[in-house]
Structure formats: structure tokens, C-alpha cells
């Protein structure tokens, strides 16, 4: 029975039945879901559901999307479901830690609100080329991890899980204006980190 299914599915999708490949994929998914959900048990659940979902609907995998992109798209939906479910159960996290880190911005801007000379954004060149380099993604992940946990979570809910602003506000107990402040700070910090660790250090990376 299983064999006949395998014959029907796209060659790429057969990787899902390869134990070693699946193991590696699972680890990456787990790392990613933990970063988003902040709770290893919830992350484990989301990954299990996503993998089961992927296996169930493997015939619908068109092969147009890379297998991993497809599986991660399923994971993304599962993560969004988890967020929504927790909100229904009244478990939406409340922002208790201070959202307000003024020091942060004074490190970037002077008292008139202008960029400090050495904090002014530099040109980034060709981002498409950058995305092809594995080392860039290590830096990107390090920078995401370096954000205050709430900022990282909210930034990812917005930019990756594609939750709407209203959904995030409800889940996190934020006003719209709070949300905008958090996103502004997350973007400033993430941008700065990537610039410092990648674009300014690129010549050094190339030497490695």
C-alpha cells in the first residue's frame, strides 16, 4: 500500500520517507518552532502536527515549491493555530517585561534624534546574493536570538507567521501603538545587528 503511494508522489516528496532526511528536517523545524512559541512542548506539538499534515497531504505536493519550503509553510500554519488556540484558552502571554528600553535608541540616535555617525546605515549591496550564502543565515539567526525574547516573537509573528496586527495585539495584550513601538525597535535592532555582524564584517567572513 505504502509503495503505491510512493509511486504516486513526486520524487522530491519521497525524501519525507527517508529517515535521515526526516530527522534533520525535524531538528530544524523544532529549533524554529521553539524560537517562535518559546515553549519546547508546544514546539514539539506543532512540529508533530506539521509533519503528520505533510505526510497526509503528500500527494498534493506539487513539486513546484522545494520540499522544505512546503513543509515549513505547513509548520507556519500550525504555529499560527497554536497562538490562536492559546489566546482562546486565555493563555495569551501578557507583556510583563518592560517594552521600553530607551537606552537602546539613545545608542543609535543622538539627543536630537539623528543617527550617531557610526550607527548610520551603510549600503548593503545585493541582498539576493547574500541570501545564497549559508553563513548569512547563521548570522541572521544569531541576530534574531539576540533580540529581547518578546521583540523576536512579535517580529516573527508579524513578518513570518503573517498574523494580523489585531491578532498579535489580542494574543500579546498590546495596544496597536505598543505593537508599532515593539516592531520599530525590533527592526532597528535586527538591522543593526545584521549590518554589524554581516555587512561590515563581510570582508572578514570572506577571509575565513
Amino acid at each position: 500500500m505504502k509503495e503505491s503511494v510512493l509511486e504516486l508522489v513526486n520524487a522530491d516528496a519521497r525524501s519525507l520517507f527517508d529517515g535521515r532526511y526526516l530527522e534533520g528536517l525535524r531538528d530544524q523545524m523544532l529549533k524554529f518552532a521553539t524560537l517562535q512559541l518559546g515553549n519546547p512542548d508546544h514546539a514539539e506539538d506543532a512540529v508533530q502536527e506539521a509533519l503528520l499534515g505533510a505526510l497526509k497531504s503528500v500527494k498534493s505536493f506539487s513539486g513546484k515549491a522545494a520540499l522544505k519550503t512546503w513543509v515549513f509553510a505547513i509548520l507556519k500554519n500550525k504555529i499560527a493555530d497554536h497562538f490562536r488556540q492559546r489566546s482562546k484558552l486565555g493563555e495569551g502571554s501578557k507583556i510583563t517585561d518592560s517594552l521600553d528600553d530607551e537606552q537602546d535608541l539613545s545608542a543609535l540616535f543622538d539627543e536630537r534624534g539623528h543617527w550617531h555617525q557610526d550607527e548610520k546605515p551603510v549600503a548593503w549591496g545585493q541582498p539576493e546574493e547574500t541570501f545564497k550564502q549559508d553563513q548569512f543565515w547563521v548570522v541572521f539567526e544569531t541576530c534574531l536570538n539576540g533580540l529581547p525574547a518578546k521583540q523576536a516573537k512579535i517580529f516573527m509573528m508579524r513578518e513570518f507567521v503573517d498574523l494580523t496586527a489585531d491578532e498579535i495585539c489580542e494574543l500579546e495584550g498590546l495596544t496597536t501603538s505598543n505593537l508599532h513601538v515593539v516592531l520599530h525597535r525590533a527592526r532597528l535592532r535586527l538591522r543593526e545587528c545584521i549590518e554589524n555582524r554581516w555587512f561590515l564584517g563581510e570582508s572578514e567572513n570572506a577571509k575565513l
Binding site: F32, T69, F72, L75, F131, D134, E141, F155, F160, R191
Partner: peptide, 24 residues
């Protein structure tokens, strides 16, 4: 500086979209 910031926000968005699926 701010002009670059603006276009880099697009790059961050694209990077976040690519983060899981395309990398490695």
C-alpha cells in the same frame, strides 16, 4: 541613512520569509 533604512526593511522582510524554507 534613512533612505537605506527604508530599503533594508524590505530586505529584513524577505530574509524572514526565506529564513525557514530556503536556508541551508
Amino acid at each position: 541613512g534613512c533612505r537605506r533604512f527604508g530599503s533594508q526593511m524590505d530586505v529584513l522582510h524577505k530574509a524572514m520569509q526565506n529564513f525557514a524554507g530556503g536556508k541551508n
